[in-house]
Design a protein around this nucleic acid. Sequence first.
DNA 1: GCCAACGTTGGC
DNA 2: GCCAACGTTGGC
Length: 154
Amino acid sequence: MNYWLVKSEPDVFSIDDLANSPQQTTCWDGVRNYQARNFLRDSMKMGDKVLFYHSNADPLCVMGWCEVVKEGYPDTTAFDPDSKHYDPTSTPEKPTWFMVDLKLKEKFKRPVTLQEVKENPLLEDMILVRKGNRLSVFPVSESHFQEILKMSKG
DNA sequence: GCCAACGTTGGC
DNA sequence: GCCAACGTTGGC
């Protein structure tokens, strides 16, 4: 079992958009970064737990968590010329980009702010608070995941 | 709106 | 293979 964090801009896709999706499930499409792609394609497994973070938002918060309900498969938005994420170098025969399906498990009653994460010494090694971090999908340790959950209950 | 950090592109 | 230029991310 592994743990992850995904970022989403709430103006584009918020945790409420996920809550309102059929089966509260969505495909995590549009990732166009190779390191994040590798996580989606190779490492995220059924049942892995995924923190849901609002970036470019006010407030900046971890909003809840999801579970991986479908493992890496080709991101079809890359094949669609009308998609904002269209990439002609990716083909169904030889896809460049991948996605997983995520199902909402819990929307926090008390979201955990970036500020609180930064102030918690137990979380100082989280990739989220690393300077210049721009990855939109990255691994989180089990203890960090549990600590965020604990803070959301506090 | 600004800008630091980072990834990608393309000329050489 | 190097690296300058450029585009994007994302916190402030």
